[in-house]
Amino acid sequence: MSYEYIKFGKEEREFRQKIEEISGENIFSCYQCGKCSAGCMFSDKMDRTVNQQILRIQLGQKEKVLSANTHWVCASCLTCSVRCPRDIDVAAIMEAIREYTLREEPEKIKISELPKKVLEKLPNIALVANFRKKTG
């Protein structure tokens, strides 16, 4: 059995602090009860649950956090935020992970590559909301 050592270096701390800065939340408020993931209606489509992502941010594991699809599956319905017993705005943390990525690479979705048919048939709120969430 192999062990993975937990590192607490400068890189780990900086990642965690950046997420805290963007979201305005204290990531260490979380005590891993899992209520956010239990109530999340998209949990079955995520490769890491919401509370797992939060634990990884606490540990500063940047690559693991960013490589999961969790924050891109999150649709900001805010169910987790209103239910959190520690009053953490969990959805804001998901938004912070998205923003962290978008501030480096601002195009998660390439608008110019969307087929014209899609652009024409979709309601404006779907497009505006999507572009605001997925472009920097």
């Binding site: 800065e21 963007i22 979201s23 305005g24 900001s76 705005d89 959805a91 804001a92 938004e95 912070a96 923003e99 709120i125 505006v128 909301a129 605001r132 969430k133």
Partner: peptide
Amino acid sequence: GTVHTMTSDN
């Protein structure tokens, strides 16, 4: 703007 930004600094 449709969706509210949840960032603290934007």
